[in-house]
Structures are given as structure tokens and as C-alpha cells.
Design a protein around this nucleic acid. Structure first.
Lengths: 167, 167
DNA sequence: GTCATATATGTAATATTATCACATTACAAG
DNA sequence: CTTGTAATGTGATAATATTACATATATGAC
């Protein structure tokens, strides 16, 4: 029974490693509550539920997948319901948009740096956040006189577990 | 009359600097022809025209913008016409998909590294390719045991020229 | 408490981006 | 020239995202 918990989420490939995900998700949710309280922001029922849905796994979910889940839970079933909640979570750094997949994933270490680098496994679709700071530094240097405000950094490839399997 | 030409395109912010764009575009197109010949790939009329359209400026164009142009030139006017040409160009490294914008831009130094880092000006929408190698190196390091196959690296912000203007 | 305001949600309609399936045409090798 | 492969044309549809506007709910002033 491989167990780990999410204070070690800073490891590059935590999502790919076996860990106690129930704890992982609960921890992220608790941190979200604290953060929102600190910032005077409201983690309303739809928003919280949306975050919980994203936290169920280290996969990205499309807005319409989230919407279906929300609708099943009694919330509205029109696209803006999902998009608004997701947009809020993203603004607050509680979720990230994965542009490569047109999908969204929960942030696994909210409250830390607002930028992130994502590793997306092409086989199992698991998503992990890698340390972004060195990458951002390199990008800033490469950018010369360009003033960077926000970044999208995503890598598609094979996670450690899927590298064994060929194909 | 500020003049520059595209052998100096390796400069991070060439697209943002004044330059002889007619030469810039012609050069990229010529290089594309050479490359395709070398690789035994066919730069057919739709494909070439698509590339020319993208090369008209350092802006990204949506697939439907490209499609409208192609249709006006007598090519088919159904989405696959544009998407197929764009996909081909991307596979060949002659164009890039800018995920942040759901749009496509011509590659300004085809034949070189297949990965790139993009700088997107939020005001003037100009797009520039920055040296990606240092960024890719940093990303590979951050990625630990994850095996990176392809990357999406984009920065949104203000180009040198637009930094003067407030807003 | 209650009122006024700002914030958040519900809903309908529509816009934008992207893919699938299949018929037809052009090309290149033998 | 014929034959197999690659490329294109076309219609239909899927998937993603936004706009506009009505309704409700929370929050702060009084």
C-alpha cells in the first residue's frame, strides 16, 4: 500500500506517483477555503463543487464534463454555469486551464506561485505540475525586452509509469 | 527607413522590430520550398497559399480566417480545407499553432528546432518566436522522470513598442 | 432588521473552433 | 496507361465558448 500525502506535492511528478489521493484532495480543498477566507473571496456552492469535481483525480476535465456533473448535482445546466465557476477558480489560482486539452485541472498547490508548468501523459492522461520557476526564468531571459504577464507552459509526453508500456 | 532581413530572425523580438517584411516573408517561403523538396513533401497550391497567407504578417490567424481567404482564392470553403493545410504546415514545422489564441502563425525560422517559445503581445497581437532551447532545457529538468515529447510554451504580455502606451 | 447595492446564478440563444465520413480528383511508380 | 496512394472537395455534425439578459442572493449602510 504505497502511501504519500500532499505536503510532498512539490515533487515534480507527484500526480504520477502512488499517493493517498483522498488526503491529497481534502488538503487542497482545505487550503482553498483558507485562501478564499484570507482574500475575502466567496467559495460558493457551485464553485466549491466545481473544485471538488476537479480534485477527484489528477486528470483534466472539459467544461462540459464539469457542467454535466454540476447539473446532476442540481446546479444550472447551461455552459456559463461551468465556465464561470472554472474562470473564478482559475483567477484565484485554485485551478488551471490546460490549453492543449481545452480542459481544466485542479491546482495541487494553491497559494504558491501563480504560474505553473504542466506535464501531460499522452497515455494515461494524468496531469502533473512541475516546478515552473526555472522555466519562467529561462523564458524571461529568452523574451528580451518583451514584458511577460502570463504564461502557458505545457509538455506532452510519457509519465514514468507509462514509459514501460511501449506503443 | 529601418531595414533588417530575416537571417537575423533569430533575434528574440524580431517580429516586434521594424523590418523589411516583404523580404522576411519571401525568405521564409523560399526556405519552405527547399525544405519540402529535401524531404520529398509536396507544397501543393492550397498548402503554399495557406503559408503565404500566414506569412503576410506576424499575427496569428484563426482557421476560419484562413479558410475565408482560401475560399476567396478559389479553393474549397469547408473547414477541413483549412485545417488540413494548417495541420500539414504544422507537422512540417512551417507553421505553429498558438493555443492561447486558437490560431496559427507562420514559422519564422523553418528547418531549425521544432519546438518554439512564443511571445504574444496583448495590445498589438504581434507574435514572436523566442529562443526555446534554454526554456526546454529548464523544462526537461523540472520534468524529472517524465519523458517530454512536445511542448507548448507561450507568453502573453507587452512587446517593447506597446510598453510605452499605458492601459 | 430592511433597504440599496453589488455580486452571483439561471437560462436561452448563438458564436467559434474542430472533426468525421465519404466521394472525387490528382499524382507518382511501375 | 494503369494502378495504388495521397490530396482535395463537400456536407454534416461535434465540441468548445461567449453574449445577453433576467433573477436571486449576499453584504454593508443605515
Amino acid at each position: 500500500m504505497p502511501q504519500d500525502h500532499c505536503t510532498s506535492c512539490a515533487k515534480p511528478d507527484l500526480a504520477f506517483a502512488a499517493h493517498d489521493h483522498a488526503f491529497c484532495a481534502a488538503d487542497a480543498l482545505a487550503r482553498a477555503h483558507t485562501l478564499m477566507a484570507d482574500r475575502g473571496q466567496r467559495l460558493t456552492p457551485v464553485r466549491q463543487r466545481t473544485l471538488e469535481i476537479l480534485l477527484e483525480s489528477h486528470h483534466a476535465l472539459g467544461a462540459y464534463d464539469v457542467l454535466a456533473r454540476l447539473a446532476a448535482d442540481g446546479f444550472g445546466n447551461q455552459p456559463p454555469v461551468a465556465y464561470r465557476a472554472l474562470e473564478f477558480l482559475e483567477e484565484q489560482g485554485l485551478a488551471h486551464r490546460i490549453r492543449r486539452l481545452n480542459a481544466f485541472a485542479a491546482c495541487m498547490h494553491p497559494g504558491e506561485s501563480h504560474s505553473a508548468a504542466f506535464l501531460i501523459c499522452r497515455l494515461c492522461s494524468l496531469i502533473s505540475e512541475a516546478p515552473a520557476d526555472p522555466v519562467l526564468k529561462a523564458l524571461a531571459t529568452s523574451a528580451g525586452g518583451f514584458d511577460i504577464e502570463t504564461t502557458t507552459i505545457e509538455a506532452l509526453g510519457l509519465c514514468p509509469a507509462c514509459q514501460g508500456h511501449p506503443r
